[in-house]
Design a protein around this nucleic acid. Sequence first.
RNA 1: UCCUCGAUAGCUCAAUGGUAGAGCAACCGGCUGUUAACCGGUAGGUUACUGGUUCGAGUCCAGUUCGAGGAGCCA
Length: 450
Amino acid sequence: MICYGGFMATRINELSQHVGETVTLQGWLYAHTGKGKLAFLQVRDGSGIAQCVVFKGDVDEQTFEAAQHLSQESSLIITGVVKADKRAPGIPGGYELGVKSLQVIQKAEDYPITPKEHGVEFLIDNRHLWIRSSRQWAILRVRATVMRAIRAWLDQHGYIEMSTPVLTPSAAEGTSNLFEVAYFDDKAYLAQTGQLYNEANIFAFNKVYCFGPTFRAEKSKTRRHLTEFWMVEPEVAFCDLDQLLEIEEQFVSYIVQTVLKENEAELALLGRDPNLLTHIAPPFPRITYDDAVAKIKELQAATEDPEQKQLLDMTWGMDFGAPHEAALTRLYDKPIFVTGFPSAVKAFYMEPVPGRPEVCKSADLLAPEGYGEIIGGSERISDPDLLLKRIHEQDLPEAAYKWYIELRRYGSVPHSGFGMGVERTVAWICGIEHVREASPFPRLLNRLYP
RNA sequence: UCCUCGAUAGCUCAAUGGUAGAGCAACCGGCUGUUAACCGGUAGGUUACUGGUUCGAGUCCAGUUCGAGGAGCCA
């Protein structure tokens, strides 16, 4: 019996509910080994991995022959009796199938990713296959939970999702790190933020968010950069920076707690210690830029390593580099807010701190363990004259911002918002080295395939 | 754009300037509890590319291409 569509099949993550019953699984051979009259098949079905044991005495000769010669990633339908067995490997493991019959849908030939170590280049070239591997499978399931938790928290708290355009007009903040695309006889650019449009949306809907891919044509080759990544950007009317930080810490904590609750098996598979995440709850430490600079200088003075000493070089007014963020966040076991950056290194639309116009009401949220910035947020300038002045100071084309300035002429209010990078957040929660593994098909500098 | 490192079998890696090797994967055989099983056997190579030095180059030199890590910039 072939059960296409899956409605007749049992899912591997539900095997524990079927002990003693005869069930049918539909999946792919993940790994196999044998021992004379026994064949051990590890079968994936998308929900988990289960060991299926074929004993020569239990099946006809053809079936045993087929089981012995099954190749990795062959697709199959397999029927047998569910047994609890502590020895059974798999995800979640502990249950296995005593096979009664086996049907090979397709015998795979020479699957390239073997259960041995492989290099990064080979794996990323084979990303379309690599996502079947258990670590990648686990990471991408956590990503799906993160994305679901993002929407759940925002939806539960009165935000409405409002799509912002991916194709945006020319000009804006300079085009050096934008991807240019032909737009009939004109040029358009792939969006690197939906924020300005969200600032229009709040005047219609009060609390909004956009959530989608965003594009940066930066020539960055580091473990923290993708050229296409997903970002969620909430924007809130009648909201100052202090209120924004409370929103952010609740939001991030909810996401982490949701993953801890729903992806225990995935985190275990990744070797991620949940104790590094269980205490993630409000409030998060807040530190001003001024204090952060002082702390970094202390750390620089304390280090013996001459290379670190040079990397930690810091003077007031500089933006943080990755080494600064890493050193600073290692002092805390929670994400930290760094507030009040110099206006000169931040975007033109950020509200100045009253009495200290050289710094602005901005806040970066830095993840612990050296993962660095996962959120950038700020209170936006609400005064039209000040906004216009800042646009002139930064030599931006006023005409391109006509609509944006107009927002401040028709019922302007204090408002704030932030953007959170999904892949960096997933990388932190999963404890992985590189953001490329937090995206199903990462786009990187020099890498557009597959 | 800059700095550092790298490219040898399908994969991961060896190989004093002197015959190109191993493990895994594949294929054949053995084993009733394997967890990246184990044991025996078979097959598998334009050493990234171009040029140079040398009696002789995977190895030394120059250039090119591709990749990795990092810096800057950023989520």
